[in-house]
C-alpha cells in the first residue's frame, strides 16, 4: 500500500490526486443515485402496484347483486344519519407545539409582506 506521507508532492501528484478525487466523488455519489433509485422501485411503488392490481381486477357479476348494493347503501345512510347525534362533550382540539425550523420561520419567509405601520 502506498504511504502518501512518504510521497514527495509535486505537480504530477497534485494533478493525479485532483483527478482521482473528482472521479471518486462522482463514483460514490453515482452509486448512491442507483441505490436510491432502487429504493424507489422497491419501496415507493409497492402500494401503487397493489392499488393498480386491485383496480385492474374486474368485478364479477357474482360478487354484488342489486339487493346487496341497496342493503349496503341503506346501511351506510342509516349509519351516517345516526352519527353525531350525541356529542362526546370532549374537546378534541389539541394544541400543537411546533419546534422551530427555518421552514416554518416567518422571519425567513420568502414572501415577506411589507411591514406597514
Amino acid at each position: 500500500m502506498t504511504n502518501f506521507l512518504a510521497v514527495t508532492w509535486g505537480w504530477n501528484e497534485m494533478i493525479w490526486c485532483t483527478v482521482i478525487s473528482i472521479a471518486l466523488v462522482f463514483a460514490v455519489l453515482v452509486l448512491l443515485v442507483f441505490v436510491m433509485k432502487l429504493f424507489g422501485v422497491i419501496l415507493a411503488q409497492k402500494p401503487e402496484r397493489k392499488l393498480a392490481k386491485v383496480a385492474e381486477k374486474p368485478i364479477s357479476d357474482e360478487q354484488l347483486h342489486e339487493e346487496q348494493i341497496a342493503a349496503i347503501t341503506a346501511a351506510l345512510k342509516l349509519y351516517k344519519s345516526a352519527l353525531h347525534d350525541r356529542e362526546s362533550e370532549v374537546l378534541t382540539i389539541q394544541s400543537l407545539k411546533r419546534a422551530y425550523s427555518p421552514w416554518n420561520s416567518k422571519i425567513h419567509g420568502l414572501t415577506q409582506l411589507p411591514d406597514r405601520k
Partner: peptide, 12 residues
C-alpha cells in the same frame, strides 16, 4: 433528495 436521487450528481 430521496424523491429525486439525480440531485446527488449536482451535489457532486
Amino acid at each position: 433528495l430521496i424523491a429525486n436521487p439525480k440531485s446527488f450528481l449536482l451535489g457532486a
